[in-house]
Amino acid sequence: MRVGVLALQGAFIEHELYYKNLGHEVFEIRQLADLSLFSLTNHYPPTTNNSLLILPGGESTVQVKLLKDLGLYEPLKAMIAAGLPTIGTCAGLILLANHFQLLPVTVKRNAYGRQLGSFTYVGTFDGKANVPMTFIRAPAIESISKGVEVLSEFEGKATAVRYKNITAFCWHPELNS
């Protein structure tokens, strides 16, 4: 699999290491030209067979600003809308829901307060028990639309969801993998 990791700001290296260790081909997306790396044939728009896009944690305000400044915002949104399998964690979730509006859930930023409110919770994810979930100044999913599958919950609220080609987390699977 070819894994493109958005590498503008945040914890992108953690995702890269995880997928490299699994033997996947990993590349960084830092500018528009990098999107063509999704395709081996090097044409645009890229074909995205057997590809995965990662939108990592970080500060969503920074990532959105850089996406727009670098002309990546619309092309990336179009690729996800066209079906590119995508995983978003934390800031990535905020990007997918509040900015791209490709994930029909409402997300509240910094829902658990400042850093002193950050925490770890061990729970069930997608049927798997005892999964450690690390929430860092985390967002919360306040409500979900029909068709959104809940993969994990905390205090009655969804903390990871799946919708079409998108999987998104309030927490950071890459920190505990």
Binding site: G10, A11, G57, G58, R137, H172
Partner: peptide
């Protein structure tokens, strides 16, 4: 204090990486 507070604090710094 949470038992893994130091880890959570290292994690926040990880989220700041690549930033100004």
């Amino acid at each position: 204090m949470k038992p893994n507070q130091a880890e959570l604090n290292r994690n926040l710094a990880q989220m700041l990486k690549g930033g100004v």
